[in-house]
Write a protein that binds this DNA or RNA. Structure first.
Lengths: 209, 209
DNA sequence: TATCATATTTAAACATGTTTAATAAAAAAA
DNA sequence: TTTTTTTATTAAACATGTTTAAATATGATA
């Protein structure tokens, strides 16, 4: 790596470290680009040159940590537990993680999850990874005779994610909601999705729309 | 109403009209407070005095229209159709409405749905209204023997909303996704929630978490 | 080595949401 | 009516994310 390249990476790292520190400490809305630049010992313009925008910096600064937590949730997932228990394990790890600084992650998700397509590479990749992983898990459950064979595993995985994400949104917006309250709620929703809400007679009659 | 009060309301209405026009025309991000103020014939400061912030103005300017559409969706809802058909009817009306200006509603929802609790009175009220209405509908289906009696109707209504909202999010973020694609996807998810994904043997064994 | 081209950094300027302090007009009080 | 208080309005200032144009440093080329 050329000298030019190394100093560039050093500068980038200085900014990242400063951003992580100040985002955590003051929250992303109260901490300005100039604050971050000062902490890193560079100009505000340099921060923009390196990271394009404040939102993009927030994304880069935080998603690495999130990915680490997802990875940890996956590796510690009970291998032989039921589908719901495995989903709840991931949710517990992630909700607990976000609980460490709710305001920070509320702003992160707001500013990244609603960007137009292609503007949020991290999030998109994480979601795709989840769908593949959890969809594969559901496929396995089909083979074991636990999930019905006609079920679309990817749709099921996406549905579980929707439930997970909605509860997360409410959790991040609602200070008095504890991790356990969020988990209990998600368990109720996810369990309904597993077992359905119709009576068995209706299910047998049921036509897909 | 005193003279002071009437002129105040007139000014407020001028700003609202100007805001609706420009938000629709240029999108909420490209249209500035000064643009709106100029169009309304008042100062930018006046806009802030009347509506507190640009986001709050966006919310007031657009949610009335949204509420009108919800009301219309409810009144045109087929009374004797199945639960899924009724949900899909509401979704079709709303997705078609949002399709008229996706970028506008993407920004609106991003900026309001993720505000901290209490900062988004319209949204909160609409969601509460939906949960009551749809929850009541599910309760009726219990009495008719279509939905199982042990099902928590409010949790079911919230789950359907989660699915509806997640698909809406993807729809608003993804230009090449048509209304029909969104509806098809929602139908698949919602149908899974109605009928579950487990085999019948597993359902009978199934323990809630 | 000297020169040119390229990449990195930044000071200053800009755009825009919001606040402040002042003004003017209406209502209330005298 | 005159005076005082309250309120609606705004010009100017401010804060902050971002852009621009210039300067500086590095690598390539002669």
């Amino acid at each position: 790596m050329s000298r030019r390249e190394t100093t560039k990476q050093e500068t980038r790292q200085l900014i990242l470290d400063a951003a992580r520190k100040l985002f955590q400490k003051k929250g992303p809305e109260l901490c300005t680009m100039r604050d971050i630049a000062r902490e890193a010992g560079v100009s505000a313009a340099s921060v923009v040159v390196h990271f394009k925008s404040k939102t993009a910096l927030l994304e880069v600064a935080l998603y690495e940590d999130i990915e680490r937590n997802i990875a940890q949730a996956v590796t510690t997932m009970p291998r032989d537990a039921a589908l719901l228990a495995r989903l709840m394990h991931v949710a517990e790890v992630m909700y607990s993680f976000y609980d460490g600084n709710r305001e920070l992650y509320r702003v992160l998700i707001r500013d990244t999850a609603f960007e137009a397509e292609g503007e949020n590479p991290y999030l998109t990749r994480q979601l795709e990874g989840y769908l593949t992983f959890f969809g594969g898990m559901i496929e396995q459950e089909k083979e074991r005779g636990i999930v019905r064979p006609e079920i679309d595993a990817r749709i099921a995985a996406a549905s579980f994610f929707s439930l997970y994400f909605s509860v997360l949104m409410e959790f991040l917006r609602t200070p008095h909601m504890t991790v356990n309250m969020a988990l209990e709620r998600l368990a109720l929703c996810a369990n309904q999705h597993l077992t359905g809400i119709l009576t068995h007679e209706e299910m047998n009659d049921g036509r897909s729309a």
